[in-house]
């Protein structure tokens, strides 16, 4: 299915839950309302026309000018083999879920795609998005006692961690490499 057909199908099925459709450019996606997201995710995973069984990536975004955070879910469908030929991807698509910067909450989809478990932990760790109903929401890459979420645009580079000094070039709060 083309991205246009997929977004139309989602619009027909979920109506208001689909807040925006962006088809221009190399990365077509729809914006889904945060509290309806698990429902939409189940549909994307189970619907016989879509069958998005592979969650490829969750990219967290900091939309600082709009005072929002977002998570981008990149999906693709791995078809079932009918013969010995290599599998060809029938369709790929992306979903963006936007949440408030002050109190960022997005429902977890770890029960829809198991791989979301670690990807959501990463987004929580580095961007500070809280995934509700996640089975094990802990920091994954940073130490447990790390302060702040490094990928936020207003993150201030720590000057010290357990006695280890951290200096930055020209004493900038956010180092440029």
């Amino acid at each position: 299915m083309t991205p246009e057909e997929i977004s139309n199908l989602l619009r027909r099925t979920f109506g208001d839950a689909i807040e925006e459709v962006v088809l221009a450019g190399a990365h077509p996606y729809v914006v889904v309302q945060a509290d309806r997201w698990p429902e939409v995710a189940q549909f994307l995973r189970r619907d016989r026309r879509l069958k998005f069984n592979l969650l490829r990536c969750i990219s967290s975004l900091d939309l600082l000018p709009d005072d929002k955070l977002a998570a981008v879910y990149d999906l693709c469908a791995v078809p079932e083999a009918t013969d010995d030929k290599p599998l060809v991807c029938p369709h790929e698509f992306a979903v963006r879920v936007v949440t408030n910067r002050g109190n960022p909450h997005i429902p977890s989809v770890a029960d829809v795609w198991e791989t979301a478990n670690w990807h959501e932990r990463e987004a929580y760790d580095l961007m500070g998005i809280v995934f509700d109903n996640h089975p094990d929401l802990r920091r994954i890459l940073c130490p447990d006692d790390w302060q702040g979420h490094p990928l936020r645009k207003d993150y201030v580079f720590p000057k010290e961690y357990h006695g280890i000094p951290g200096t930055t070039e020209h004493e900038l709060p956010s180092p440029r490499h």
């Binding site: 969650l55 791995v78 083999a81 290599p86 599998l87 795609w113 791989t115 990807h119």
Partner: peptide
């Protein structure tokens, strides 16, 4: 393998001809 997002040789070893 697909649910856990495996790709590459790990996925193909499970019999999925996905590259």
């Amino acid at each position: 393998a697909i649910a856990y997002g495996l790709t590459g040789p790990c996925l193909r070893a499970s019999g999925v001809r996905w590259d």
